[in-house]
Amino acid sequence: MPAVLTVDPRSGVPIYLQIIEQVKRSVALGVLQAGEQLPTVKQLSIDLTVNPNTVARAYRELEREQVIETTPGRGSFVRPDGVAESPRVAADIGRAALTAALREAKAVGLGRDETRALFEAVLERWFPTEST
């Protein structure tokens, strides 16, 4: 697997959630492909210098969410349907980022209409409507 995982232990976000988020993102972006093998729990814990049980917890959650599958003795792999799920994962990532942005807009005291106007302006910049 490409060395795409990094964690920031000093962040307030639990390390196992950081690992889950990054594996999902890598799958959604195609950095990790169907059937691709993930490092073993031990290897990843040594690579990231984080506790092996923390990595194991992230892998268990990724299995439960059917992003990866683990075969005893062989290792952990990205599920084919884990990749098929990637549009949903991409939507989840987008929703979380938008939620954070809108919460911030509300926190600084913007109203619904002002926020909508800002959203439309930013949307236009990144997703321009076809002029033809």
Binding site: V41, K42, S45, I46, T49, V50, N51, P52, N53
Partner: peptide, 8 residues
């Protein structure tokens, strides 16, 4: 790293 290796 040595500590983590022992735990593993």
């Amino acid at each position: 790293s040595l500590m983590i290796n022992e735990a593993a």
